[in-house]
Design a protein around this nucleic acid. Sequence first.
DNA 1: AGCCCTTTGAAGCAC
DNA 2: GTGCTTCAAAGGGCT
Length: 487
Amino acid sequence: MPQLNGGGGDDLGANDELISFKDEGEQEEKISENSSAERDLADVKSSLVNESETNQNSSSDSEAERRPPPRTETFRDKARESLEEAAKRQDGGLFKGPPYPGYPFIMIPDLAGPYLPNGSLSPTARTCVNVPLDLHLTSCCSPLMQYLQMKWPLLDVQTGNLQSRQALKDARSPSPAHIVSNKVPVVQHPHHVHPLTPLITYSNEHFTPGNPPPHLQADVDPKTGIPRPPHPPDISPYYPLSPGTVGQIPHPLGWLVPQQGQPVYPITTGGFRHPYPTALTVNASMSSFLSSRFPPHMVPPHHSLHTTGIPHPAIVTPTVKQESSQNDVGSLHSSKHPDPKKEEEKKKPHIKKPLNAFMLYMKEMRAKVVAECTLKESAAINQILGRRWHALSREEQAKYYELARKERQLHMQLYPGWSARDNYVGGYGKKKKRKRDKQPGETNEHSECYLNPCLTLPPITGGKKSAFGTYKGKAAASAHPLQMEAY
DNA sequence: AGCCCTTTGAAGCAC
DNA sequence: GTGCTTCAAAGGGCT
């Protein structure tokens, strides 16, 4: 991504980003890309199945902590075995195709490469094939425009307000990114659609227009043993519906398009002071676009489109749940004896942190991982995603770092006074919870676990404690060579 | 109900 | 500058 340097004077771009793995040659990376997905899955699977086969290796190398596993021959062999075994079981569920194959809008191609080592198309790639992409949106534009188109193919935002403000605020670096970024509101949809990626995160699994593949209907609930369809065919799994909520299906742009009964971003008629100076509008072309691209029930009525002050989904008030199906007036006057403290908390919107690169990657890839395996636990999935993250090429990681950078940028523009400290529950130093306690001498002796996590993944459901320290200091992060290259 | 787990990265604070 | 802590997402597991 050559344009990564284009930030120029952008001081928001974290200079300590893009941790690369220089010991891992490019060729190695490519190999890793092509088979990492399947290998990861097989590895984790096998490790989950046979957890006793762990901690056989104990060599330590502190520096190796930040590196992906050097694909030792042993590891390769094992990975290959796992992969072969996985391939044998392909019909048994391990490599099930994503249950929601038809996301009609856009998706990110399989970052791990569409082809299996044997040359066949990977399941996820097959999914890609099935998806009617609007490639024309992205193929002919600059990367940044591709990004924007990718993120907001439907959105037209009035940017004058913010732009002018931004122009005053940051006149020193009127880079295109700034300008265009204003069109990409940071939106953190509490119902799993990422702010910046309302249409692509979990992309290909969304909005399946048709029925799921037959083999997926045999998906069996591990708890009940009852076959279950992954999700209603045309409803995103990330917009869970409670019984009787038909008609309240949140729009993929739900944060942007307030809907009646939409529990997430309640608009109180006057009670909510929106922090955004930006006026977001959806113009007629977008409406028609919505109509043409979304199923009718997904297309909000025009009258619901606010021309000003649409609450940003990154703002989550504590009263969200309570207000879910009540009208605003009622909720405002429902309590006769409001607790001043609580009231104050209610009034104070919770502005979430912008997602970092890995979080963006996770949001995008989680559904794919979930679809490819039967794992449901996020802890296990995140382990896979963490390994996949390391297996990504520099360019692919750079893409997410760039997205994260833009998100931070926008977040800062949208919430000028916001600080991450605001979200510290008890304030800094007052721990909300204690995590990642390190046992004495634990730091490096598990580096091999990191090197080959598939062999040594801790029991997913067993312990409460991390099996190995995961903290990597800034020093380690900033030592990443790619930072120099990309930023 | 609420915390834990698990991942990486960003940010804030203390020293 | 370094080290540590918290939070961001996610959802099953656990208390």
